[in-house]
Design a protein around this nucleic acid. Structure first.
Length: 446
RNA sequence: GCCGUGUUAGCUUAGCUGGUGGAGCGGCGGACUGUUAAUCCGCAGGUCGCAGGUUCAAACCCUGCACACGGCGCCA
């Protein structure tokens, strides 16, 4: 009777830990080829691939024919001896003595993700791969992306926890908007209308006087019809809020966090990055270099100097961002946007109230904005003034105003687009490549 | 919401100015005792997105529709 629990992984065998030993491997058939006397199965598990050699003479006709019928993505258990052989990819192979097909694949309905199906996977996934994402997940490209993603999530948790931030959860059903307001998903809520949250921020500010340093990683939802390689309708948002801090303090955390993420994936996932064709020197530069800061005014002047049609007071759209960041070889902060271009919760600069104390972090290589943050409008007087000047109704924000009514303090925070960071650091062609089941304006399946 | 492109086998695609649709991958059958995306021979698999129109004749030309993709606005 075989044990169900898997104790040995292909990665350990390829590492050379079991040379010459008899082993049992559980996995899936990645590729198969051979003749009627010798058959090769390239076995895959979550850790690696290994070539398994099946000889008719050694296993007998019945086993040989049975194993030869295992189509791509059949699950199998193979027993055999670990043989060091230069001819085998990875340097190790299994000389099979016995084997069993656990989950066969029906030849009438073979695994649909073929070599040809993946031909155009680099440079934008085909509709077919998106429709079959549940199966595409098993391929090397997606597996690499998911492992890198896991390290990015781990790095974010570590960064904040090592600095005594408290992880804090906000509701996903909310009553009002954080951003402009037109991009909320409506949800029927027992005869009323609720919305899916766009950000954890307003609820985080409520807890700021209790926890002082807090963070989250949670999905945010935006009903934007954006059809770009940077947008999802459901994305993972890493947000932090910190009491007794100004714009610059918040930026320091943003920079340290992003550099920390880059360093972590270099340490943990350099093989996966290389498999994906990512230049490790580039990632190392993002991990090691400081991120320069540039005021909005300077950015506008630079753009005007380049002949770009832009007037002071306009927000920087992606077209302009792209021109601006074209020469950047590391992420840059853009700070001090005009007050009229930003929502009420951004605090006007006491030195010059035409501007607000905010920052965006723009990634190079055309990946765009990965962080938006700043110092919050923290006094009751100022928040009422800003809400009114925007023409926003007060009553959905009463709880938010209360935070200022009872012991308001200077504070700030940022939101980081986790999927965008994954996409940028992994060098993905599209943000959809770094999330298992992407949601955009046209896709909620599979 | 706007601009642009496309839809041919399960998948990836070729198909010139209109004349009975080809290939590779995958599948099936066969050959091969060390393959590396194995190779070689053979077989099956297509109302050429849908509906009209022009024509002796339409995958190809025209009209409408549907669906998809790329990008912009918006943002993380």
């Amino acid at each position: 009777m075989r044990k169900l629990v898997k104790e040995l992984f292909i990665g350990d065998v390829q590492a050379g830990d079991h040379d010459g030993q008899s082993v049992e491997l559980k996995g899936w058939v990645h590729r198969a080829r051979g003749s009627n006397k010798i058959w090769f199965i390239v076995l895959r598990d979550s850790t690696d691939y290994i070539q398994c050699v099946i000889k008719r003479d050694s296993v007998g006709d019945e086993s040989f024919e049975a194993l030869r019928s295992a189509l791509i993505e059949s699950s199998v258990i193979l027993n055999g001896e670990v043989n060091v052989d230069e001819r085998a990819p990875g340097g190790h192979e299994i000389v099979v003595s016995a084997g069993e097909i656990i989950g066969p694949v029906n030849p009438e309905n073979p695994f649909p993700i073929t070599e040809s199906a993946m031909e155009n996977a680099d440079g934008g996934e085909t509709e077919f791969l998106l429709d079959n994402r549940h199966l595409y997940l098993r391929t090397g490209r997606m597996t690499n992306m998911l492992k890198i993603r896991s390290s990015v999530f781990g790095a974010i948790h570590s960064y904040f926890r090592e600095r005594d931030f408290i992880e804090y959860q906000a509701p996903n059903f909310v009553a009002g908007a954080v951003e402009g307001g037109s991009t909320l998903f409506e949800v029927p809520y027992f005869g009323r209308t609720a919305y899916l949250t766009q950000s954890w921020q307003l609820y985080a500010e409520a807890a700021m006087p209790a926890l002082e340093r807090l963070y989250t990683m949670a999905p945010s939802f935006r009903a934007e019809k954006s059809r770009t390689r940077r947008h999802l309708t459901e994305f993972w948002h890493a947000e932090m809020e910190i009491a007794w801090a100004g714009n610059s303090d918040v930026m320091e955390h943003g920079e340290a966090l992003v550099r920390n993420i880059a360093r972590t994936i270099l340490d943990e996932r350099s093989e996966e990055l290389e498999d994906l064709g990512r230049d490790l020197d580039l990632v190392a530069r993002y991990a090691d270099s400081p991120y320069p800061r540039m005021r909005y005014d300077e950015a506008v002047e630079t753009l005007q100097g380049m002949g770009v049609d832009i007037e002071w007071g306009q927000d920087l759209d992606y077209t302009k961002e792209k021109v601006l960041t074209a020469d950047f070889d590391v992420p840059h902060f853009l700070t001090h946007y005009p007050r009229i271009a930003k929502p009420f919760y951004h605090r006007p600069d006491p030195d010059d109230p035409k501007y607000v104390l905010c920052h965006d972090l723009l990634a190079p290589e055309g990946y765009g904005e990965i962080i938006g943050g700043g110092e919050r409008t923290w006094s009751e007087k100022e928040i009422l003034e800003r809400i009114d000047e925007e023409g926003t109704p007060r009553e959905p924000y009463e709880f938010y105003i209360d935070v200022r009514r009872y012991g308001g303090v200077p504070h700030g925070g940022f939101g980081l687009g986790v999927d965008r960071v994954c996409s940028w650091l992994a060098g993905a062609d599209h943000i959809r490549e770094v999330i298992p089941f992407p949601r955009d304006s046209r896709r909620v399946t599979p």
